[in-house]
Design a protein around this nucleic acid. Sequence first.
DNA 1: CTTGCTTGTACTCATTTTGAGCAAAAGCAA
DNA 2: TTGCTTTTGCTCAAAATGAGTACAAGCAAG
Lengths: 341, 341
Amino acid sequence: MPPAPTDTSSRHAQPVVIDLNAAIVQVADDSPLILVVRPENGDADVWDALPFGPFDPLQHRTMDIGLRAWVREQTQIELGYVEQLYTFGDRGRHALEKMGDGDHIVSVGYLALTRGNDEHAGVSWRDWYQYFPWEDWRDGRPDIIDRVILPLLQEWVSREPASTNEELSRGRRRDRARLTFGIDGGHWDEENVLERFELLYEAGLVREAGRDGRPNAVAHERGSAPQLGLPMQFDHRRILATAMSRLRAKLKYRPVVFELMPDTFTLFELQRAGEALLGVHVHKQNFRRLVEKAGLVEKTGRMSTATGGRPAELFRFRREVFNERPAPGLKLAPSRSRANT
Amino acid sequence: MPPAPTDTSSRHAQPVVIDLNAAIVQVADDSPLILVVRPENGDADVWDALPFGPFDPLQHRTMDIGLRAWVREQTQIELGYVEQLYTFGDRGRHALEKMGDGDHIVSVGYLALTRGNDEHAGVSWRDWYQYFPWEDWRDGRPDIIDRVILPLLQEWVSREPASTNEELSRGRRRDRARLTFGIDGGHWDEENVLERFELLYEAGLVREAGRDGRPNAVAHERGSAPQLGLPMQFDHRRILATAMSRLRAKLKYRPVVFELMPDTFTLFELQRAGEALLGVHVHKQNFRRLVEKAGLVEKTGRMSTATGGRPAELFRFRREVFNERPAPGLKLAPSRSRANT
DNA sequence: CTTGCTTGTACTCATTTTGAGCAAAAGCAA
DNA sequence: TTGCTTTTGCTCAAAATGAGTACAAGCAAG
């Protein structure tokens, strides 16, 4: 077998430790829930964290296996769908407060889906919109956007440094705000969760931004820092944002919702789950047309009477789609009008 | 600032070394080229490798920066677009031949795009279809598929173990072959580069599969192992497959082709570049309708006479699209008929 | 300097897909 | 029965898509 062609002289680079972070998602009662580790003593100064654990290549052949192992240990949860998100060297630029020169940590973010699971010592499920209140448009445009975010972003836009290196960057801040938050004429794209969070971070509007020396100008001027969603430890809210973006995108071209659904469900329940994740409403009749035409579900013959109106047929996921064609997802297009729930 | 909530008792996990692997792509003369490191002495037994280098968190703040640094050093190339692909613990299951228990390597794959660049000591540009001959459908279905791959896959399908754990896995192999290679009735999806490579790997049909003890049954029975594309060192061909999949997908929803184009170009040149990457042909008139309607390009007023027929207008990329809407890509749908080139 | 060859560019047209609304069906409760 | 609620079936216009036809504009050979 051939030897490595490039010389490996610089192979004795700083050894690092690998950390696996998991955004574990569940949907219950129309709410997307995320598993977080919370301070035992209810200390409000201690922020929530995503569960994480080390990766030991000696014990586990792959990182996926390692992830499943410590999640099982820490939380008793057996993960279903698992997908790698992104790897940050030294937790990316969202560095933690201060660490010795000794331990360098590379963290790998994961998205994992699971069906209904109860709480367990030390961990709890939280609606992910508590961390991202501006991402839930199911009851119309969240007013935290107009009340808090936009004014603060305006300030940030107007503080744009006069001369920047890059020629084209004039009005760059304004453009980014318009694109990500869809203000004046722009369109809200529910997939841009990460872009929006990064914008808020750069603008110094989220609590986490205070840590790495970024001047939280706006907040300080006002004396009272606005709280834009609950903060999380390290760069965990960023990882959660990545997970949300990825999941919202994937939903549309791969049948991942079903990983979050019980065995049987009504079409409307399925729709609600999708909407919970996307944070928008879709047109009901078109939704069922889509799902049925795509052959994603099949009737069970049984009915659900818990609807409050006409009983609904219970469906189940057609696993066969995997063997038929490159399995599609729910091409959910948010409905403009809120007419048809 | 808050301390980590989960106990970090197991923090002294095996330290590892981080390797960054880059799939650096360029398009020239209708060929997608990939930068590889080749044996100095022309030794045929030494396989090509992707350029790679270590990541040292002490020297570089982020992995992207580290990547750019050693690429510049090793190859004099200044990378433009860079995107992280995937991280393998211990190079994933495609382990290298044998390594001491000491050094555990985690490798992070990257996709990078660059405009025309010349060769340089130790590295050279190769058409990526040399590694994946079955992926180029521009001159119709490549006959390596019918001549070599399908017969071998048939054998593999028929060798499917009679009783497997999973209930549903009867005929699993047949289904996978049908889905990924689009045989009998299936549809060829040019994005499934990785899935196809993994299938061939599992079936023991690529040279790399021999290394990790997988019985290369078919090849051995026949005495002459068929060569399905050029092999690469380690799991580099897998990384390249990942890069191709990602790039082919991204092309359709983000304006990444332009990272590979010269300053000005004709619409047909743009089309050829897209086709080279996708490995399929698209309908010419519809292509220009798409590109112009999407506002991706603008006229320069100048003409190109190098067309061989009527001179073509020269266009340039409209950078403003980035500031207008979530910048779109070329929703290239392969044309069924090969009528309109 | 006209004919033929090649490629660019402008339109057209049928089919599908998409977004949105109307209306009947089927349960429950007053 | 009469409302009220939700499910489900269907229609319809607008937009997007796939595939042509036709003509324009250069070059080269005769």
